[in-house]
Nucleic acid binder design. Structure first.
Length: 482
RNA sequence: CGGGGCAUAGCUCAGCUUGGUAGAGCGUCUGGUUUGGGACCAGAAGGCCGCAGGUUCGAAUCCUGCUGCCCCGACCA
């Protein structure tokens, strides 16, 4: 009778997460390839929406797409000392090809700083070649010991921006610009509020001078690193000889950045909005905005309700939301009860469901129901279509407001270690003063927490460090994390 | 990679302790009746019981190895 039960969040959050993915038809474990996943059409459609929006933002900030090889010579990875140390444990290596052992193994890219560095060295000679602003949409592989769908898989899809600049100042500007792009995207498109901040030295990207992050709060109170932007300094420039002649005729190494977001965003999306009935999608990322369910008992009603559905669908498709045509689907399936169809689309997170049955035809109205609950509303058929974009926008805004309210309600300040531990036990975001002593990492590890970041918008709030009691100027964000 | 759990029909699972060659519910297909929050009746199809060995006259069941998934930990987007 009831297909596809979804475990309530309160009962088992991890199981709920998997149920939502399965019932929402987003993805499944690859099962014949360890740690990898198959992203199913509905899940991939969400990724395509993410890509489309981000790509537009990248282009708008002057970047151009390019593509570099999947395989990276092993020697490249080794050229930057910290980089190789950071990535060595998770490299997948190709040792044979064409039936022969290779002279030099290739690694399947875990990220592309090295191979891009190699080519940047060829492309850049003069300050006139700078800045060089490149982005790549690609798959990468990191051999993870523990995987979770979307959040951490052996292979994942992402974009990696790689830029080269003449000065460190320009480089830092770029790092912050792209962090802002990510932050704005997360909030306005994903409706997922984030804390922008700088990573501690021990959570820096391997090979970077500094790493900046956007951190989001999931419904279980854990933090998710949703995107990163790195100031690579001249580390890769030096390792790969990426040099340019300055205006003054001096030879200098370029300053580089890299920044990326991945399919992990979909995991964040799920854990920000979805509920015990399954997937909830913000309209801006929903592959289908409105599903129309015609209700009929016989051929005559079928013909009439479908005709009405077609008419409204056509009106809707002529409209736009968020610079894109509305995506509308009519569920024409026979032999399936309306109720069954409701569940079907609900689990897939479609923002609005429209019901058109004989009663509606009589009244020249339709029944509208928003995915996140509330009663059905009845809207005159004549103007329902033109109301939809506004309704979607309101829904989008409410999802963000709700997520923000949740995060704020679960964020606290702590001024003693006891309070910190107590708050972390309740899975809160905790803001505490810290004077910079690296010993904090180990101490937090004992309670499965980490410094997520040093928030960029932190106000001066001098006081004793929560760890050492030394004078600290600002608070950092501490939380459990994915 | 360590500890724990799991793997039987598309899905959820029973059968395993005490070996005898595979079941239920849901889903699917075919009719018919139905259809405003998971319909009903009748009939049917569907499984190398994760893979490979071993023990045995005989293995879903016992033993070993492997693979994959889930949870916890260590490591990480």
């Amino acid at each position: 009778m009831e297909a596809g039960k979804i475990t309530p969040r309160a009962q088992d959050y991890a199981q709920w997460y998997q149920d939502v993915i399965k019932e929402g038809d987003l993805a499944q474990p690859a099962e014949v390839v360890k740690g990898c996943m198959v992203i199913k059409p509905h899940g991939y459609a969400i990724w395509e929406k993410i890509q489309k929006d981000l790509d537009r933002r990248f282009k708008a900030t002057g970047h151009k797409n390019a593509y570099f090889p999947l395989l990276v010579p092993m020697s490249f990875i080794k050229k930057e000392a910290e980089h190789v140390e950071g990535f060595a444990p998770e490299l997948a290596v190709v040792t044979h090809a064409g039936g022969k052992e290779l002279d030099e193994p290739y690694v399947i890219r875990p990220t592309s700083e090295t191979i891009i560095g190699h080519f940047f060295a060829q492309w850049i000679q003069s300050y006139r070649d700078l800045p060089l602003l490149i982005n790549q949409w690609a798959n990468v592989m990191r051999w993870e010991l523990r995987t979770r769908m979307f959040l951490r898989t052996g292979e994942f899809l992402w974009q990696e921006g790689h830029t080269a600049h003449a000065t460190h100042e320009e480089c830092i500007e770029e790092v912050m610009r792209m962090l802002d792009v990510y932050g704005d995207f997360a909030e306005t498109v994903m409706a997922m509020p984030v804390v922008k901040g700088r990573k501690t030295d021990w959570e820096r990207f391997a090979g970077a001078l500094s790493t900046f992050t956007i951190e989001a709060m999931m419904q279980d109170g854990k933090a998710l690193q949703a995107g990163t932007s790195h100031d690579l300094g001249q580390n890769f420039g030096k390792a790969f000889g990426v040099k340019f002649q300055s205006k003054e005729g001096k030879e200098e190494f370029v300053w580089q950045t890299s920044w990326g977001v991945s399919t992990r965003l979909i995991g964040g999306l799920i854990m920000t909005h979805s509920d015990d009935n399954g997937l909830v999608l913000p309209p801006k990322l929903a592959p289908i905005h409105v599903v129309i369910v015609p209700i009929f008992k016989n051929d005559d009603e079928r013909t009439k309700t479908l005709a009405a559905a077609e008419k409204i669908a056509a009106e809707l498709r002529a409209l736009r939301y968020s610079d894109e045509p509305l995506d509308v689907e009519i569920d024409r399936r026979d032999g399936m009860s309306p109720g069954q169809k409701y569940y079907h689309w609900e689990r897939r997170g479609v923002p609005y469901r429209m019901e058109i049955g004989p009663k509606d035809l009589e009244k020249s109205s339709v029944a509208l129901k928003r995915r996140d609950g509330g009663p059905k509303t009845f809207v005159p058929m004549a103007d329902v279509a033109k109301q939809i974009p506004g309704l979607l926008e309101a829904y989008q805004n409410e999802l963000l407001a709700k997520a923000k309210a949740f995060r704020d309600a679960n964020s606290v300040k702590a001024d003693s270690w006891d309070d910190l531990v107590k708050a972390l036990d309740q899975n809160k975001f905790v803001y505490a003063r810290w004077a910079g002593d690296a010993a904090l990492a180990a101490k937090l590890k004992e309670i499965q927490a980490t410094v997520r970041c040093m928030p960029l918008d932190a106000q001066a709030d001098p006081g004793p460090c929560i760890l050492t009691g030394k004078a600290a100027e600002k608070r950092v964000l501490i939380a459990k994390n994915y």
